[in-house]
């Protein structure tokens, strides 16, 4: 490896193992960036996806059948509507009343469960919001943003509809504008 003269040495490339290391390193780097890019481009999880189980702790006063937390897997056989919201989110306020009246309509059937997932919010403010809009369905904080990360939400409000088999069927990005809109999504799932 020593080159002690000014005369150009005989054509000598880079040792193979060094080349391998360089290419592996480059490929790894590009791979990571590609995965990051892919992730950024992905958007929310798509309908047809079987939703993994998660546990949502619930605010006191907003329990589900008296339990202070709810597991998605326990709700198998029911239609689950997961609504991501936050008290600082202005568009969320537009749909709050519609969601609540939909809940009041479906709650008696016992076949539909609404879950409010409070994204990056503080509990006192969340309570003010829930009270202001008279919301009664189960609500709880998205601890460590795990649930929102799983759904890859892009913002609030977003609402995810899961069928009786635990499969995601519909994604609503942005607020609902009418009760009818919510019914149009839930009713077909109910009659399945």
């Amino acid at each position: 490896m020593t080159e002690s003269t000014n005369i150009a040495p005989a054509r000598k490339g880079v040792p193979l193992w060094v080349q391998v290391i360089i290419w592996v390193f480059l490929a790894g780097l590009l791979g990571i960036v590609a995965m990051g890019l892919n992730r950024a481009q992905q958007g929310t999880i798509q309908p047809g996806h079987a939703v993994d189980d998660f546990t949502l702790p619930l605010y006191s006063g907003y329990e589900y059948q008296g339990a202070s937390e709810v597991k998605l897997s326990e709700l198998r056989g029911k239609i689950v509507v997961i609504n991501f919201w936050a008290s600082w989110c202005k568009p969320c306020e537009q749909e709050a009343a519609e969601l609540q009246s939909a809940w009041e309509q479906y709650e008696p059937t016992g076949e539909v469960v609404f879950l409010g997932v409070d994204y990056v919010d503080t509990e006192p403010q969340a309570r003010v919001y829930l009270k202001k809009f008279g919301i009664t369905f189960p609500n709880g904080p998205d601890l460590a943003t795990r649930i929102s990360q799983y759904f890859r939400i892009k913002g609030v409000p977003e609402t995810y509809f899961i069928d009786r088999e635990g499969v995601l069927r519909y994604v609503q990005v942005g607020p609902f504008t009418s009760l009818q809109q919510i019914q149009n999504i839930i009713d077909p799932l109910l009659s399945e």
Partner: peptide
């Protein structure tokens, strides 16, 4: 990146130092 790295490796012997 790949083209440039490839070219450098290809010309490696010409890129050696002239003195020490």
């Amino acid at each position: 990146l790949i083209t440039s790295a490839g070219l450098i490796l290809y010309r490696w012997d010409m890129l050696k130092s002239e003195t020490k």
